[in-house]
Design a binder for these strands. Structure first.
Lengths: 203, 203
DNA sequence: CGTTATGTACACCGCCCTGTGTACTTACCG
DNA sequence: CGGTAAGTACACAGGGCGGTGTACATAACG
């Protein structure tokens, strides 16, 4: 709509039918869920003909998988590539994104599709493992005694906050961040020059 | 089938059409998800005519809500009413149930229905709050400094383990239990006569 | 006995869903 | 110019869904 200047009935010039589809997926899948969003509705929102959509994606299943692959960069790299933060701050920064980010579509997809073999479910699994691995990397960098364990624990906290936020309709990430702070302080042998304040569960 | 002795075409004598429906719901909703389980299939599994099902429940929505209400006792009271355990052990016992219990249908329902106003979603919310409250009770009994906070934190760990187990297809409750142990030891002023072993929660 | 409550069996409605078939239109590029 | 790639518009098939209507069968009770 913004800069795409379409001919009376002809194809859009703004270039990127595929992108508009994925963009609409992000919005609708989040707002309504995957199963409750039909292809008709989705194509209408993307301002794309249904025929075109099925030329870009073999079916809804593939579209869902691709839709998941699109969040990757914004969430994962956006947090971990901040060199301005100390390792400890970087670990805690993972609990600050939730307001911006759309409440973990990976869990939602895995639950809605309900098939561990579905491409999207497989990717969700890989993604979650990748996040845990990157958390473990940061934990190692921060000098944690058992980085893998801390990474897994922090990943669990993030997932718990996402799930609980969804069910309770109330932000659970502050609670998760408080727990994370305790875990981090307990796992790092007090060598860091960080501001380790001694409250056990500050919010 | 076991003891219900049905007439050739007549109604079952085993008494409890409603119960058979709810029982079949437990099985099918868990195995296939709510949205992917149709009423036809469900009634067939329950060995109940569709007409009867709609005389017991006004619709699928109500059935789903009632289905959630049926797990309550087994999960909630089964764990917290064990007087043979110390308060600390009782807090940790909440992380032992997962193999038996069906991986938190409350989260699944909230995600699948995707409508916070749906009766089942509302009940899921109430249930999650009730669990947190009972955890807080046990935490208070155990002498925690801030029981409400500890209860909320433990509840978050449980939800995180449930979600993560679902996505990764691997039991995440041990990890959650380890975190819980750290939190509990950190929150209780070391007055209890419990077996507080000094592993990672050193200080 | 007859009545009433409960249940079966099964066809059927209307709706929405994913996905395709057909015919037409436009931009681009050699 | 002509061809090709990309897209539109729209109908429609095929299937599953939630839910209902109809006619019949049985058990329990007075």
């Amino acid at each position: 709509m913004t800069e795409l200047e379409k001919g009376p009935t002809g194809r859009r010039r703004g270039r990127g039918a595929r992108e508009r589809i994925l963009l609409a997926s992000q919005q609708l899948f989040r707002e309504q869920g995957i199963n409750r969003t039909g292809m008709n509705e989705l194509c209408a929102a993307a301002e794309v003909s249904k025929r075109t959509a099925y030329q870009h994606f073999s079916g809804k299943d593939e579209l869902v998988a691709e839709y998941l692959r699109w969040f990757d960069p914004s969430v994962l790299s956006g947090v971990f590539d901040r060199t301005d933060l100390t390792p400890r701050e970087r670990l805690l920064a993972a609990f600050d994104i939730p307001a911006t980010t759309p409440l973990c579509p990976y869990i939602g997809a895995a639950v809605e599709l309900h098939d561990p073999e579905h491409p999207a479910s497989q990717y969700a699994r890989e993604y979650k493992q990748a996040v845990a691995a990157r958390l473990a990397d940061a934990a190692r960098e921060a000098g944690a005694a058992d980085p893998e364990q801390l990474g897994e624990q922090l990943a669990l906290l993030i997932d718990g906050a996402a799930a609980r936020t969804r069910v309770l309709n109330a932000d659970a990430f502050p609670t998760a961040a408080a727990v994370a702070a305790v875990l981090i302080d307990n796992a790092i042998p007090a060598t860091a020059g960080d501001d380790r304040r001694r409250e056990e569960a500050s919010r």
